[in-house]
Nucleic acid binder design. Structure first.
Lengths: 210, 210
DNA sequence: CGGGACATCACCCGATTGGGGAAGTGACTG
DNA sequence: CAGTCACTTCCCCAATCGGGTGATGTCCCG
């Protein structure tokens, strides 16, 4: 807290320049923070991280080229003590869970206020984890128990684009009966009425993307 | 262009404070623009418009409480010469069409650059329409011809949450055969393989929301 | 007034889906 | 090594969906 303490060096990663601009202007108004880099996707994020070694990284999840989860995994693989805060629009609870599993120390929604952003940056920089209670409870409610398996997600993605069980079976090289078994399991886990409902639930929770 | 010309007075409407911050910092760096208000949803936008009468309004579409389309309609109803620029994340082409029909003069994506934002603000302020070619062509491709009717959208929304035709018929007080007829029409218009596909296409195009 | 779009309903029939239960394989783990 | 989990396959059968075709009434527009 002394005025000789080095500032917190921050990297922002988001594909919306305007959003980065907002974060930048908030950070630059803080005496104890300095923005040292920006990136528009996961790939740039990794490069920029290697180059600048920021104290705290603010990472969006939904980006072209390379998404935030993969970027977090890559960065934490190389720099295990990297402090990363996820800053994203809603996007479902599974994303949040994945990000935290990948080693994110904080999770923020873009609808949150400046104050919360700054508090989270300072907390994470100090080595503390920081996840808003709304997010934490939502993660606890879903995700943990009834997570879809890899295979089920593959199947559900095909269903989302209008494939029939028979077609899915053909492209995956398995029996139609197997696809039906996966569908039964998917609908049970998501408490969906039918395949369409399963798709919309999965989209809402961030289990599949469009 | 003389330095005695009054500045362009701007109102920003978006539910993400961080995004508003970004727009604000860009605008405040311009000598010929001034930010005179912010709003976080459609309702606040209308209030703020009445109070400040901005020259140009930057409006997000997807907001809680009251969405951007409704806000544009309300504002243009009261102030027919209001100049409104839509500034949104992707969100499908139907949204863009609706916004332009509602009287928006410009359409911008949040992934666009500062330069384009400023150019659009100046163009719209000068009374010119300004829509990026990508958006314009996408609107031309879809929307116009095979738009869903009100009734079809109602039906499709129910399908999205897992209702069977029979249930939809019951809640709408019509025959199941009628629901099936609507579904046939919907799938034909959207070129969907099945009901699930119809839902994901409609979500992508912004025809229905989640 | 003659379309044209919309919403409604009907019938037929094959294809697809979804619910039930059962069971074999391989891999990983306590 | 026994147990669990993911993935796989099979059977039966009722319910639902989707395609084809046709028809009625209404409302609005030229």
């Amino acid at each position: 807290m002394s005025d000789t303490a080095p500032p917190i060096r921050i990297l922002t990663v988001d594909d919306h320049p305007m959003l980065r601009e907002g974060v930048a202007s908030v950070i630059e108004a803080q005496p104890d923070m300095v923005l040292i880099g920006e990136a528009a996707n996961g790939r740039e994020a990794i490069e920029s991280f290697r180059q600048h070694r920021p104290d705290v990284t603010l990472m969006d999840l939904q980006m072209p080229d390379m998404n935030g989860i993969d970027a977090i995994n890559a960065i934490r693989g190389e720099f295990p003590d990297a402090r990363i805060v996820v800053l994203t629009t809603y996007k479902g609870d599974v994303q949040a869970l994945r990000a935290l599993k990948a080693g994110a120390m904080g999770y923020l929604l873009k609808s949150m206020l400046r104050k919360e952003l700054l508090e989270t940056i300072r907390a994470v920089h100090a080595g503390r984890r920081r996840v808003p209670p709304e997010i934490a409870t939502e993660i606890a409610e879903h995700a943990a128990d009834d997570a879809l398996t890899e295979r089920e997600i593959v199947v559900l993605k095909r269903v989302a684009v209008g494939s029939a069980n028979k077609q899915i079976a053909a492209t995956l090289g398995i029996s139609e009966e197997t696809v039906k078994a996966h569908m039964k399991s998917i609908m049970a886990k998501l408490s969906a009425n039918d395949r369409t409902h399963a798709v919309t639930i999965a989209l809402n929770r961030g289990i599949i993307e469009m």
